[in-house]
Amino acid sequence: MGATLRQRDNFRAVLLISPAYLWLLVAVFLPLSAMLFFSFLSEGPFGDGARQLVLQNYLEFFEKGFYSKLLWRSLKLGAVVTALCLLIGFPCAYVLAKTIKGRWREALFLLVILPFWSNSLVRIFSWAIVLRGNGVIDATLNKLLPFEVSVNLMFTYSAVVIGLVHSYLPYVILTSYLTLQAIDDSLIDAARSLGAPRRTILLRIILPLSLPGLVAGGVLVFVPVVGSFMEPRILGGRAGTFFGTVIEDQFVAVFNWPLGAALSFTLLAVVLLILAVASPVLKRAQ
């Protein structure tokens, strides 16, 4: 009796779960496996020669300095953007979580994370409008300053960094806010009443306790930034060649899909490595 009930439960569970997971299998997990296989092929679907399994696509990455240099460039971009997001975002989350109360806090919090759910492409486009020469920045500065200036940040490395920070800042604010909110205020009050200076409270209580949120936010920024291609394309122009844009090229311009697959997989390996390094801290948070 018990066994048949068990079986019926199992049957129902499978019935409820399998549609979702079959879908994920066909649209995510099989494609990722197919890409791994593809990255060892000598020719893509558009070639006519005999296809062979080769290592050449990965060798190209290691032998030609071009690709590894670009990956390094993308990793550095990721580090810069992540650092800026943490430095700018954490104090903002602190102000929200610890100094503002009630309905105001809710409303301001919503206002801060709202852009993060709106279309990222459109937000990058909006920076293109702001940063172009002869644009809004020029006009504003020239009104404020007594002398003529001309600022044209468009198509520079800085433009890419500004756009990416704008895109991903809300992630850091969100995760920091959640961990900061969980810190009991009486802990801080206790330290203060025992005479701890502000710096000690920050370094010994607030920062250690909000570390998981900072790490989570950092990972949420770093991973997509290393794989970004749309932002550098639009804001960076010729200064915007990164690992992501080269992968994009392999699929939409050069049509060297096997090389593209190998580069994508290299990126995935890097991403997984980062997630593995970060996971102990993230697990502790749960």
Binding site: L24, A27, V28, L30, P31, L32, A34, M35, F38, V223, P224, V226, G227, S228, F229, G244, I247, E248, F251, W257, G260, A261, S264, F265, L267, L268, V271, L275
Partner: peptide, 16 residues
């Protein structure tokens, strides 16, 4: 599907 950059997922889907 959430954590892997869309660039990787998207190109993998295209291939498959």
């Amino acid at each position: 599907p959430i954590a892997i950059p869309w660039l990787i997922t998207g190109t993998a889907m295209l291939i498959f």
